[in-house]
Design a protein around this nucleic acid. Structure first.
Length: 229
DNA sequence: GCGACAG
DNA sequence: ATCTTGTCGC
């Protein structure tokens, strides 16, 4: 079983990131968009009980039909610290992923990959520890900047770090609607990551993978609380 | 130095 | 992330 060591403090977490970051693979194009199986993952929290519920939903990339689902509930083991999100979400997320009856060719994370203060966001971390191709699709630009993409669906602008380096892309998934922020996680090119994101978002701003995972983890959290109360 | 900052 | 009903629109 894939495990993520829970750091005892932030310094240790950063040291772990530094070590795992060396294992990120960036020279593979990744799976072909619109084919195979794509998984979406997300988590929901109950702060009062320190619970975290994770969901993994697998879609047929061609039809966007749901072919498998899995959830897991665990205790929160790390605080929310911007830049260290993976240590909070990954343990439970991996449990849900491993319980899937199939292995996806790509995992779409709700958050960042290389677009990260230390170039090792949640999607990179998940990709490295599972070995699976992964990308990050976030709803906010965090500390990064970008020019306004053209209005049509499919338009994009480079997502820039403070030092000017390109860490991802602000991608318009719906005409005239706020873009999403795509970055590479592991074993996928940025072009491919954006193509997948577009293919997964035919109707709404957020990819269907993330939408399914979001509603499923919220449901799992409600049921976990309901069963305990 | 302080605040902002993926979820 | 989360606090949160009805309402507007396809």
């Amino acid at each position: 079983m894939t495990r993520v060591k829970t750091p005892s403090d932030e310094a240790e977490a950063r040291a772990i990131q530094d070590e795992l970051r060396r294992r990120v693979v960036l020279d593979e194009p990744g799976p072909e968009p619109g084919r195979g199986l794509v998984a979406g993952v997300d988590v929901a929290y109950d702060d009062a009980r320190d619970l975290v519920a994770a969901a993994a939903v697998v879609l047929d990339a061609a039809t966007l039909d749901v072919v498998a689902e899995s959830t897991a509930v665990g205790q929160v083991s790390f605080p929310y610290v911007p830049g260290l999100l993976a240590f909070r979400e990954l343990p439970t997320l991996l449990t849900a992923l491993e319980a899937l009856p199939v292995t996806p060719g790509l995992v779409v994370c709700d958050g960042y990959g290389l677009a990260h203060p230390r170039r090792f966001g949640l999607a990179c971390h998940l990709g490295v520890v599972t070995g699976l191709p992964s990308i990050g699709v976030a709803k906010n630009p965090f500390t990064f900047t970008h020019a306004e993409p053209g209005a049509p669906r499919g338009e994009s602008a480079p997502l820039l770090a403070a030092d000017g380096s390109v860490v991802g892309r602000a991608l318009r998934t719906q005409h005239g609607i706020k873009p999403v922020y795509v970055s590479v996680g592991h074993r996928v090119s940025l072009d491919n990551a954006c193509a997948h994101t577009l293919a997964l978002s035919p109707r709404f701003r957020i990819p269907e993978t993330t939408r399914h995972a979001d509603s499923l983890c919220r449901r799992a959290l409600r049921e976990a609380i309901g069963g305990a109360a």
